[in-house]
Design a protein around this nucleic acid. Structure first.
Lengths: 218, 218
DNA sequence: GTCTATAACGTGATAGAC
DNA sequence: GTCTATCACGTTATAGAC
């Protein structure tokens, strides 16, 4: 029964075991704070094998980080570029998809944010993040709605930030919720499930809110 | 003229120079990734002086971290407990105060979030964060509005997360905005200035949005 | 209080037996 | 491929002169 608890116990190749363990530890502690010994222990392998398969801690980290980033942005791209869904439909799917993803991997956001600050801008280029967002079906639908006067002519990033913020932010501050609001882990996940239905509603309220007379040039 | 650029050049005590430098470097790189040499260099002092004044890297970090946390939560407490302002007024002040704070110190959010995950729950207790939020005038005004039927009876944390997320999240992902939206540093700050007026409007739209029939217990 | 030199330690990486 | 033992290096911390 305890053999099924984690993938280290199952019959995976040593290389895969190391990479999986590295992903867990790097996500949780970041590059600088993790020791190669931590990864070896998590993977139940000998320390020397890490260097045998991946040459160095840094090379292993680069592989894990790129995979994580690509996975994250690819799943955004899939939703944003689905030509068959409406603007509102994309919001629903995005919210639901990402809340599930973050419940399963709550350490990912801080990991990504930290790397985005640390790494230079070429990482973002390498990921093609710009094309994913700015040339997406979602973005076009968005701009059409501004042109039609359905949505106020604010910088699109305002709404992207609001949407992603409402999805991701709770996971970043979840320790605070436990400490401040006496919210258990299970209650937290229940709140996140609620938000699958709530965020789309809130997002529509934000999109159509009457905006004050401010300077709206870019 | 260049003597006024930073506080290291002015006539501060060595102890203060070290602490200021430590704050800058720790905020930017976190505990594990900063070397005491980095701090010494930033402070323009000899490496040995760091240990002379603060005993160890860890003790210096603890001092800096606690000060940062206390400063952050204290400024929230000041707004939340101001009996002279209305519910809406508190939102306005909170948004404006924090956007200014974050423009001046964009590294603070990730630093705090990372520490909240790393440190145990006793840090949150030590900060009195629970009392600051749950017993605040803001929170009482909030619950009164639920009782009056002005606001739907959702868990208060939903709205706190939405509000703080809209304020803080852009600063956490600012590198992405530069990479994706071709937003310069100045344009970013201009967008944040806009948000001082926009977030209160959006927040009110969220607060009064008709919510769907979901399970709202807990 | 401030410096130089160095000790003490932790960690990444490798050599070499099996 | 996998292990034990160990090296090589960077970093924290301190000793001791000034």
């Amino acid at each position: 029964m305890d053999a099924e608890n984690n993938n280290q116990a199952v019959d995976l190749s040593t290389e895969t075991k190391i990479k999986n363990a590295a992903r867990v530890v790097f996500h949780k502690k970041g590059f600088a704070a993790t020791r190669t010994r931590d990864i070896a222990e998590e993977a139940n392998i000998n320390l020397a094998l890490l260097n045998y398969y991946f040459r160095s801690k840094e090379k292993l980290f680069d592989i894990v980080m790129l995979e994580t980033m690509q996975g994250f942005f690819r799943s955004i791209a899939d939703v944003f570029n689905d030509e068959s869904t409406s603007f509102e439909g994309k919001i629903d799917v995005l919210v639901s998809t990402y809340i599930d993803l973050l419940i399963a991997n709550p350490d990912i956001p801080l990991f990504i944010f930290h790397e985005l600050r640390t790494q230079s801008g070429e990482l973002i280029e390498k990921l093609g993040a710009k094309q994913i967002i700015m040339k997406s079906s979602f973005f076009k639908q968005f701009q059409q709605r501004i042109k039609d006067g359905i949505i106020p002519p604010l910088h699109p990033m305002h709404f992207i930030m609001n949407l992603m913020g409402m999805i991701v932010f709770p996971f970043v501050v979840s320790p605070l919720l436990r400490g401040i609001g006496d919210v258990t882990h299970e209650q937290f996940n229940a709140l996140m499930q609620q938000r699958k239905a709530l965020i789309p509603v809130w997002m529509k309220a934000i999109l159509h809110a009457e905006i004050p007379n401010i300077d709206i040039k870019s």
